[in-house]
C-alpha cells in the first residue's frame, strides 16, 4: 500500500505562537518498503506519523494511503481505517496495563467484532514467533521492556495491516535489545510484505531502510543511499 503526501501543510498553535512543521511537503512511501524518518527532536517526525495514520489532519494538501484519501475522511472513517489497515508501534510500548499479553494483542480485533477463529490462530502464530505465547496470560507490568515491545509489535501486526508505523520503537531499549527488536520488526514486515514507516534517532536504523527521509526546514528531504539491508541480502 503506497503512502503519498501531496503538498501537505501543517502548523499548530504553540503557546500562542503558530508553528509550521510542514510546508507544501510531498513524498511517497512505496508499498512493501521500509522507510526511516530521521530528524532533530521537535521537528515533526511524530507529527508526520500522526498525519499518515489520520490521528491528525493536515491544514491543506492531500494524504493518500493506497486508494484512500485520509485527509478527506471523517473522524470515524479514519478511526476504522486505522483499526483495519494500520499497525502502530510506540517508543513506550503503550500496552493497556489491565489487559493480558493475549488480550492486548487481540483488543482491536475484538473491538472490530472479528471472529476469534480468525484472529486467534494469527495471534498465536505471531506470539510464538516472538517467543511470548507462553506468557500470553501475563500482564504487561510483569514483562521486561524488550518483551513489552515484542507484544506491541505483535499487536501492530495481528490484524494484518497494510501499513505499519513505528515511532522510536527502540528508543526506550538498550542497544542490544533494540537491535533484536529492529531485526524482528524488519523481518516480520518484509516477510508479510507490509509498508513500514519508522521514526528513529538510532544511527543503526539506516541499516534496515530501503529509503530514508530527514525532516528539516518544514519539509521531508530524501537522503542518499545505498542502505544496507542485512535481513534480505
Amino acid at each position: 500500500m503506497d503512502v503519498q503526501m501531496q503538498k501537505i501543510n501543517k502548523s499548530f498553535d504553540d503557546s500562542g505562537r503558530r508553528r509550521t512543521i510542514f510546508c507544501s511537503t510531498s513524498a511517497r512511501f512505496p508499498s512493501g518498503s521500509v522507510t526511516v524518518i530521521v530528524g532533530k527532536s521537535g521537528v515533526g517526525k511524530s507529527s508526520l506519523l500522526n498525519l499518515i495514520s489520520g490521528i491528525d489532519l493536515p491544514d491543506s494538501g492531500q494524504l493518500r494511503v493506497g486508494d484512500h484519501c485520509i485527509s478527506d475522511m471523517t473522524d470515524t472513517e479514519r478511526t476504522l481505517f486505522r483499526r483495519r489497515h494500520i499497525g502502530f508501534i510506540y517508543q513506550f510500548f503503550n500496552l493497556i496495563p489491565v489487559l493480558t499479553v493475549l488480550e492486548n494483542v487481540i483488543l482491536i480485533a475484538e473491538l472490530d467484532r472479528v471472529s476469534p477463529k480468525t484472529y486467534l490462530p494469527r495471534a498465536q502464530t505471531l506470539l510464538e514467533q516472538v517467543g511470548l505465547w507462553d506468557r500470553r496470560s501475563d500482564f504487561p507490568e510483569t514483562l521486561s521492556g524488550g518483551e513489552q515491545q515484542r507484544v506491541a509489535i505483535v499487536r501492530a501486526l495481528v490484524n494484518n495491516p497494510d501499513l505499519v508505523l513505528a515511532d522510536e520503537p527502540t528508543g526506550n531499549l538498550d542497544q542490544d535489545t533494540g537491535r533484536k527488536i529492529m531485526q524482528m520488526i524488519s523481518s516480520l514486515v518484509r516477510d508479510q510484505r507490509k509498508t513500514l514507516i519508522m521514526v528513529t534517532h538510532s544511527p543503526d536504523a539506516a541499516a534496515w531502510a530501503d529509503q530514508m527521509f530527514a525532516v528539516a526546514d518544514c519539509d521531508l528531504a530524501a537522503m542518499d543511499g545505498p542502505f544496507h539491508e542485512p535481513s534480505h541480502g
Binding site: 473522524d75 470515524t76 478511526t79 483499526r83 502502530f88 510506540y90 503503550n94 493497556i96 496495563p97 473491538l111
Partner: peptide
C-alpha cells in the same frame, strides 16, 4: 487520558 489516547490511536472509536 494516555490510555484513552492509545486506544483511540489503535482504532477504538470515540463511542467505544
Amino acid at each position: 487520558t494516555r490510555e484513552i489516547g492509545i486506544l483511540r490511536a489503535c482504532g477504538t472509536l470515540p463511542g467505544q
